[in-house]
Design a protein around this nucleic acid. Structure first.
Lengths: 191, 191
DNA sequence: TGTACATCAGTGAACGCGCGTTCACTGATGTAC
DNA sequence: TGTACATCAGTGAACGCGCGTTCACTGATGTAC
């Protein structure tokens, strides 16, 4: 073969990374495959060697981006202090200003809700993995209560980050993040 | 003239209503002008009699939809009980299942954050009007604290509604809404 | 060892299609003289 | 009062363009005999 063993898989992952970044930055509907492939250093036609369709690519990017987020979160947390640090990082100006490398949910949830059921199912599974990690790090009480708080906490973080991204006034945007951290920590520490 | 005085304005408002519904339901990027005009009972070409461009239409729909939301909210609230009822209504299965007639922020905030600055400025202004109404109905404390809580509360409601829309499991989706109401009321009643 | 063929990731041109936008035209009414 | 012209919301065909997708082809390597 012309290419190393594993080369195809490397290329596929590379396309996924590029697409994942562009989708989060520009939206999936607003991002064309030609742009993805050019950015990946390939030509149009090569796309279909790796993916069945654009829908397929969207589903794969959602899946892998959430997998990566779960791993990062699992490593970063492990204690209440770790969870609090993760919340501060999530609701930071740095995260707000870098959607392409940030939380896929905050960037794409509006579009995900309108995706084919298969993609929404994939999303739901991965989301639940993330909610499990959050719940694991919440203090005491029943596992059920922690798990339910995790969904509330995550929804809150997502909504607040999105508001901070939409608003044009930087001071207001910063304030939304700061107040959001305070409220999120209140959810973490309620009992 | 062939048409009544005020006919043009009526038509314009009709196009706005149709577009506003389709944008919230399908996303603005994923909705074509031909679809909007057909749904409005007109032909393609008539669009440019009423609007300068698609961007212009998006900005106008965002503006008028938020204006309408502000009026509804102002009427529905007026007391803490009213605010609580508005929160329950926002985080209800009915709202979740009817994005086309629902909160424009929950349906479009991801796209709004990527719109031209002019649209984002319009959005920010209107959002602040809504946050003012929410703040007005929060209990006591300083006006500044209430205003900041309003942003947190709204961000939370938006994020939770979006999560409930993305998730495929109905039971989980319902639970997210119920727990979200509880947490939102906690923000309302903290002091 | 040399040659013919198979494999397959990637190329790049082309497909049909729907997009946002433009424009010559329509036709009912209002206005001027 | 009658006629010529102006107005203007709306029509519908067409524009160029980029979309997602297809496909004949390339060319480096592996395999068979």
């Amino acid at each position: 073969m012309r290419y190393d063993k594993g080369h195809k898989e490397t290329t596929r992952r590379h396309i996924l990374e590029v697409a994942s970044r562009l989708f989060r930055k520009q939206g999936a509907a607003a991002t064309g495959l030609a742009g993805v492939m050019t950015e990946a250093g390939l030509t149009n036609g090569a796309f279909y060697i790796h993916f069945k369709s654009k829908d397929d690519l969207v589903r794969e990017t959602v899946s892998t981006a959430l997998d990566a987020q779960l791993v990062n979160l699992d490593v970063a947390t492990g204690s209440i202090a770790g969870l609090e640090a993760a919340i501060r990082d999530y609701l930071s100006p740095r995260h707000r200003d870098n959607p392409g490398a940030g939380c896929p949910t905050s960037a794409l949830i509006g579009e995900i809700a309108r995706q084919p059921i298969k993609t929404r199912k994939t999303y739901t599974e991965r989301l639940n993995g993330i909610l499990d990690v959050l719940a694991k790090n919440l203090p005491e009480r029943s596992a059920d209560a922690r798990r339910r708080d995790a969904a509330t906490l995550f929804g809150m973080m997502v909504g607040i980050l999105q508001l901070s991204r939409a608003v044009t006034d930087k001071r207001q945007s910063d304030l939304i993040l700061e107040d959001g951290i305070e409220a999120a920590l209140m959810i973490v520490n309620r009992g």
